[in-house]
Computed example of a mutant assay.
Amino acid sequence: MDSTDTRHEWAKRSGEYSPEYYAYYGPDETSETVRRLLERFVGRDAAVLELGCSSGRHLAHLCDHGFDELAGIEINDDAFDVMERTYPDLAAEGTFYARAIEDVVTEFDEDRFDAIYSVETLQHLHPEVEWLFDELSRVTADLLVTVENEGDEKQTDETYVDDGLPLYYRDWGRVFTETGFDQVTVESGKRDTVRAFRL
């Protein structure tokens, strides 16, 4: 499966891991972790972008806690219909891009966002688009947060979720320190590793 195939699969995603699926569960412990890190390092006035925002459950949590300059990128068009029904305030107040991450980020000015974060999204980016990691460094003014499944020493670089969609294990600490960030915190959970980086 190449990067085009991967984008196509996520763009038409339904059922498990779809926008409806995430909206049903709503904000969670990860939403709280992201909020805590943003408040600690950049504050509620920060311009914040979520990569792969789906129907917006993490952004909605930020919106409910006083963050007012929120944006998201999501390839699945259905996500925005779900967002309007489930999180109408976020849908009305946020800025959203209904395209692939790699097609949007290149259009942003340098240091466009004070903070950018990703929750189990970067792990699905095909190796063909790893140039995007440098672009994320370019458009981030201060803080980058990754909440990703990094695998363990027994796993290969690539695996597949239940229905054959690829997941690429990477050491995000290495990836983003090589693009110029300093890692300021790391927390290992049952499934994901949370890392915060600053420029």
Rank of each mutant, 00 (worst) to 15 (best):
A98Q: 12
D111G: 11
E74K: 05
D64P: 01
E148S: 09
E148N: 12
H126M: 09
A141W: 10
Q123M: 14
L62Y: 06
C63E: 15
R170K: 11
D134F: 15
E130W: 14
A115I: 06
Y21M: 03
V194D: 00
D2G: 01
T179Y: 03
R85A: 13
G26Y: 01
P27Y: 03
E158A: 03
A141I: 12
L167Y: 07
E110M: 08
A47R: 15
T179Q: 11
H124F: 05
V42P: 12
T30H: 02
F133T: 11
N149K: 13
F96S: 00
R191K: 13
L49E: 00
H126Q: 09
D171L: 05
Y22N: 08
Q123R: 11
S55I: 12
T6D: 00
D114M: 06
P27E: 00
S3C: 07
D171Q: 07
E158L: 01
Y17I: 07
R44T: 14
T95E: 15
V161C: 03
Y24A: 13
T106S: 11
L51A: 08
T95W: 08
G180K: 10
D114N: 10
T95K: 13
E20A: 12
A11N: 03
E187H: 07
H61E: 01
L167V: 15
F133D: 10
L167S: 09
S54E: 04
V184R: 01
N149S: 12
E130L: 06
E50H: 13
C63H: 15
W131L: 12
S137F: 08
E148Y: 06
D77M: 11
E148C: 08
D68N: 13
T146A: 05
E150A: 07
E120V: 14
T193H: 08
G72N: 04
Y22S: 07
E187N: 06
L132C: 08
A196W: 00
T33D: 02
V161Y: 01
E110V: 13
E150D: 06
S55K: 11
P88N: 00
S118T: 02
Y117V: 00
D64V: 04
W131M: 10
R40C: 10
D157I: 11
W172K: 06
A141N: 14
D109E: 15
Y22C: 09
Y168T: 01
L62S: 03
A92C: 02
F133I: 10
S118P: 06
G173P: 04
W10Q: 09
L37E: 07
D2C: 01
F176Y: 11
F96G: 00
R44Q: 13
K190N: 11
H61I: 02
H65M: 03
